[in-house]
Design a protein around this nucleic acid. Sequence first.
DNA 1: GTCTATATAATGATAGAC
DNA 2: GTCTATCATTATATAGAC
Lengths: 210, 210
Amino acid sequence: MDSREDLTARARIRDAALRHFGEHGFDRATIRGIAATAEVSSGLVRHHFGSKEALRDACDAHLARMVSEINDRVRADPAPGEVNYVSVSLAAVGPYRDYIRRALVEGRAEPLFDKVVELSADWMAEADKKRSDRPVVTRQARATVSTAMALAVTMLHEHVSRGLGVDVFSPDGEDLLARVLLDLHSHPMLSPDEAAAMRARLPGKPRKRR
Amino acid sequence: MDSREDLTARARIRDAALRHFGEHGFDRATIRGIAATAEVSSGLVRHHFGSKEALRDACDAHLARMVSEINDRVRADPAPGEVNYVSVSLAAVGPYRDYIRRALVEGRAEPLFDKVVELSADWMAEADKKRSDRPVVTRQARATVSTAMALAVTMLHEHVSRGLGVDVFSPDGEDLLARVLLDLHSHPMLSPDEAAAMRARLPGKPRKRR
DNA sequence: GTCTATATAATGATAGAC
DNA sequence: GTCTATCATTATATAGAC
């Protein structure tokens, strides 16, 4: 959260909003509470942002900017074939995790999701080179679903933590999670033959690549 | 939603609450709105459930009962090696999709999640028989993460729909999604060697199975 | 840019009649 | 079991002073 104490009031309000929205959700969070955290009056919040909705929009926009920067940094980074492209992004985005989680399930923060899909597609393009059979669906489609799956653990972290017996955001949890993901990602649920058979049994007419 | 018109007022309120909570979220949903949908007075809601929170608890409990029934039905069903165990559950639970989605991301509806994990673990036990190498993590752990991933598309359906270019809950979307999942599940992201190499590079000390 | 004070509107909870 | 009426709280939005 920019960690400096001498931020403009506007920035302090925005950061406070990010925290409150993340912690309590948009509805439960109050302008007064945000103002208190930012150490300003509720009137000033209105002066700068106009309304609660607009304040949320400002939060989304700020996050999108940040994600763009992270995106560039990850791309520049030479770390090859890292499955953890999502973990990396999420780590960088750490303090905003709660906010992002809520935003995503509410269908907001589109630029954020789409950036991660791009990243995933890049990685997948590499993997596709080693692949013998031609994919039956576009890379974009596979990257999208793959991204959703990669975000699932974060989205459902309470349940995953319960199932794993350890908080997934703790060091132990991260370690265990990494091992689980490694196992899952190296052991396909279906053989190519099984997949083909199931695909043949699909109700819809055979369709074009989309 | 039990679809009968002649339900007890209590049941009508509960069903209306399920819809309102799902559509608008718990905070935004109002007792008055729920009462209106159920065609009763707001006073009666209080009479039957005491408070908004208690009403939500009743919704969760009702859903848990339903899921248990679905669970039993799926288990009894001879459909073998169906990847779609989640789709099946979700289809049966269709009208409550929005409610479930919100409940899950808020860390609620534990019994629901845990039941699906059980189902997933059962299916995985079958798959493990065909497996040569010994998994490095418990089946419970793998089933948990796997379940979270399987639920991801539902959780993030707006974003997935946007990425796919088609509503995932439409017939076309379901068809495309099925093909994507088939492709993803039959093409591991990592080879066993790669996975082993990455596991070796993991920071934590090698750990016991958990 | 920043504050205080107030208007206005909803909502959850409650009490009590039928 | 069901309703009407009302209270008390809380939050956003607003207006205007410094």
